[in-house]
């Protein structure tokens, strides 16, 4: 899941996997695609870049990314990065500080969320594979939201629009001010 190792396989597929014949064929073809790298120029992915902050006491931020409809209703959780190392799940104590995500999703979720939640990331760019993850989402206009909240620091949200299903290449990005450097969404139309 690091930037240089694009992940072609959906991280978790059972729920989001479409059952169309085309999609099944596409999935079968994926391993070949990995070998040839010619099948798609680039994978569907979301890049989240966290800033390097010159502060006395730095804690990696909690970050959530999710797909929401135009009214703000959460449709798909994409990622939640939090402190997963603490004893007795104590890292969950601060999930509420991702306050938009907490209201839209987190407070109703049971942590950890399989294929979605994971440990916090250090500053720099992390890439999340999106292939197949929106296959079951109804056609329409959506936003991908990213929210970051840092202990002894601030909170920031960014969003980029996306219309599903993707009909032409999407390259959308948004720049942050404090807790997020940038987010970039790249998606290709289904083959």
């Amino acid at each position: 899941m690091l930037k240089d190792t694009p992940c072609f396989l959906p991280l978790y597929g059972k729920k989001s996997r479409s059952n169309t014949l085309l999609s099944k064929l596409y999935r079968l073809a994926l391993p070949l695609g990995m070998l040839s790298t010619a099948m798609t120029a680039q994978a569907d992915e979301l890049e989240i870049t966290l800033p390097t902050l010159n502060v006395a006491e730095y804690h990696a931020p909690y970050v959530a990314a999710w797909l929401a409809d135009e009214r703000g209703k959460r449709v798909v959780d994409i990622a939640v990065w939090y402190d997963t190392d603490m004893a007795n799940n104590e890292g969950e104590k601060w999930l509420k500080d991702l306050r938009m995500w907490w209201r839209r999703s987190g407070r109703s979720a049971s942590m950890p969320i399989d294929g979605v939640s994971g440990a916090t990331r250090r500053p720099g760019t992390s890439t999340i594979a999106l292939d197949g993850r929106f296959d079951d989402v109804a056609a329409g206009d959506y936003f991908i939201w990213v929210e970051a909240a840092r202990e002894l620091g601030g909170r920031e949200t960014l969003k980029v629009p996306v219309s599903l299903p993707v009909k032409q290449t999407v390259n959308a990005s948004a720049e942050g001010q404090h807790e997020l450097s940038s987010i970039t969404l790249h998606m290709e139309p289904a083959q």
Binding site: N89, K93, L95, K96
Partner: peptide
């Protein structure tokens, strides 16, 4: 008024 975790 709103907290997260297994208990708080």
């Amino acid at each position: 008024t709103s907290v997260s975790g297994d208990s708080e």
